[in-house]
Design a protein around this nucleic acid. Structure first.
Length: 268
DNA sequence: GCGACAG
DNA sequence: ATCTTGTCGC
């Protein structure tokens, strides 16, 4: 179960060409991607049909916040919400010092280890609230090689995942201007979403304005073991504000946790 | 060659 | 990601 991540690109790469180093990570992503499942693959149902059917109840959310003082100090957070009441049933934090830098397209190598550890800890202890579905702060297949953080975590944890991006990662000709042009042309006055169709014709996900007032959309893409259609439905059902609750709660509590921790450190 | 680039 | 105040509105 305990797999070791590939080594990060050369440390002192200030003066070195890093494209060669990234090849290690690219290879790792390509190998993991072979296990990716892009359709619904779970036992539960969105709505409780009969008494014998398993219903979706526990929806997880993960996020990482950083110290304002020391950028390498981070707090990984996992929360689990009740799908229908959207109340937080579980939360856990993990303080770490990240050695791997953030490189666009390779976010998983920096953030996935901490988040996977939080999931593993919950599973080992047989916690009854272990998520049936996980929402990730970052993209799924909306990624240069079709394998973003949400896919990475989904495959390694063998869990259905949905990627939620708050900013667009430019892929296959999809640009900021292209999106708002599509969003505006849709003549939609209400909350709605548009397919993110790239130059190649491939659909990478959807841009969705979850709140009536928000002009800035969120970007939904599938992670693992779920279809885009189902992902969209679940995101809509968990959106009280712009960002779906599982992600929003993980975000808020994570930032809260690391801030209070540093406040206590100052008193000392 | 230059710019763009999830968190 | 993080640094940051007030302000407009339900």
């Amino acid at each position: 179960m305990e797999k070791k991540s590939p080594e990060p690109p050369e440390e002192a790469s200030q003066s070195r060409d890093s494209s060669r180093d990234n090849q290690t990570w690219i290879t790792a992503q390509n190998i993991l991607r072979e296990k990716l499942i892009t359709e619904d693959c779970f036992a539960w149902k969105l709505q409780a049909g009969s008494k014998e059917e398993e219903a979706l109840r526990y929806v997880g959310g993960v996020d990482i916040s950083f110290s304002k003082d020391d950028p390498s100090r981070a707090c990984g957070t996992l929360v689990v919400l009740d799908f229908h009441t959207l109340q937080v049933l579980y939360q856990d934090f993990s303080l770490v010092t990240l050695q791997v830098p953030y490189v666009p397209g390779f976010l998983a190598f920096r953030e996935a280890p901490v988040l996977l550890q939080l999931l593993e800890k919950m599973k080992r202890s047989n916690n009854p609230f272990y998520p049936q579905l996980l929402m990730v702060d970052g993209n799924g297949i909306l990624h240069p090689r079709g394998f973003g953080l949400a896919c990475h975590i989904g495959v390694e944890a063998n869990l259905p995942t949905i990627g939620i991006g708050k900013n667009l990662h430019h892929v296959d000709g999809l640009t900021h201007s292209r999106v708002r042009e599509l969003l505006g042309a849709e003549e939609n006055c209400s909350e709605d979403f548009i397919n993110l169709v790239g130059c190649s014709g491939h659909i990478w996900g959807v841009a969705m304005r979850s709140t009536q007032g928000s002009i800035k959309p969120i970007f939904i893409s599938i992670g693992h073991k779920i279809s885009l259609q189902t992902a969209i439905m679940i995101v809509q059902m968990t959106c009280k504000y712009r960002v779906p609750e599982p992600i929003r709660q993980a975000d808020i509590r994570s930032r809260d946790y690391i801030r209070k921790l540093e406040a206590n450190a100052k008193v000392k």
